[in-house]
Simulated scan of single mutants.
Amino acid sequence: MLFRFHANIFALPPQDSNGGRITLRGVELHTLRSQTFDAFFSVAFEEAYDALAQLPRIDIEPDGFFVISGDLDGRRWQLNGHLYDFGDRLHRVELHGDCPPESLDAILACIGWPQTPLAFELVMEGVALDEAAFRQFAAAKPTS
């Protein structure tokens, strides 16, 4: 199974709460109510960068742009990503593409997960999801 998505990943702000429901890719999902992502990750940009640089099959640039790829059952997958900081604090990570769940977990571990709860803002759909809803969305087959 490959996840497919385009999302901004934030540290979940403490004031976020459950919002309404939405159906995406044929799956009913709970959204997050607050759209203010003002929390920072517990790791600094440089720490996330150094951790990501240790992952296999990754190419990472000093500005925080990275590409990671691989093969699963003869199918090529690739994620493009970018670390964004304000000052020396990591604010968000943008990820776009597809990957196995284990590869996403490895990337998320580099930014403090699972200790840091996450919010996933779907770029094209314009909604924010918690981790469980995001994983349901990412695993669902995209519709045209």
Rank of each mutant, 00 (worst) to 15 (best):
F45H: 13
D130V: 03
T31N: 11
N80K: 14
I22H: 01
I111P: 00
G81M: 15
G81Y: 15
R89C: 04
L55F: 11
T36M: 09
F10A: 05
F120T: 01
E94L: 11
H96E: 13
R33D: 10
R33K: 14
A133Y: 01
E46T: 08
G20C: 08
Y49S: 05
D16F: 07
H30E: 12
T116F: 01
D38Y: 02
G97W: 06
L52M: 07
W113P: 00
A48L: 08
A119Q: 10
D59N: 12
D130G: 05
F120G: 00
V27T: 13
L129A: 03
E46D: 13
I58W: 05
Q115F: 08
N8M: 11
A119D: 10
S17K: 13
G19D: 05
L55H: 05
E121G: 02
P100G: 05
N18I: 13
H91V: 02
G20F: 04
T31C: 13
Y84I: 03
R21V: 01
P114G: 05
L108M: 14
F66W: 09
F120K: 01
D88S: 13
L55N: 03
A133N: 15
A51M: 07
D88N: 12
L83H: 04
P114C: 03
E121H: 14
S42I: 07
D63G: 00
D105P: 00
Q15H: 15
A132H: 10
G64E: 00
G26S: 09
R25H: 15
R89S: 14
L108F: 09
V127K: 04
D38W: 07
E125H: 14
M124D: 15
Q54C: 03
H91G: 11
G26F: 07
I111Q: 09
A39E: 13
A39C: 04
N80T: 11
I111C: 04
E47K: 12
E94F: 06
A133T: 03
F41M: 04
A53G: 01
N8G: 03
R89T: 01
H91N: 04
V27A: 12
G126R: 09
R57D: 13
I68F: 12
D71H: 09
D63C: 01
F37R: 07
L72V: 06
A119E: 08
D85E: 12
G64N: 02
S34P: 00
I60K: 08
H6M: 11
D63S: 10
G64D: 07
F65G: 06
D50S: 04
N18G: 05
E47P: 00
A133S: 14
S34C: 02
T23P: 02
P14T: 09
S34I: 02
A7K: 07
G112L: 03
D73M: 02
I111Y: 05
H96R: 15
I60W: 06
H82M: 11
P13N: 12
F37N: 09
L29H: 04
N18E: 15
A39V: 00
P101L: 03
P100R: 07
A48R: 08
R75C: 06
H96L: 13
F41C: 03
V67L: 14
F40M: 09
I60F: 05
G97C: 10
A51R: 10
F66I: 06
V27P: 01
D85M: 04
Y84S: 07
R75P: 00
V43C: 13
I68L: 12
A119C: 10
Y84R: 05
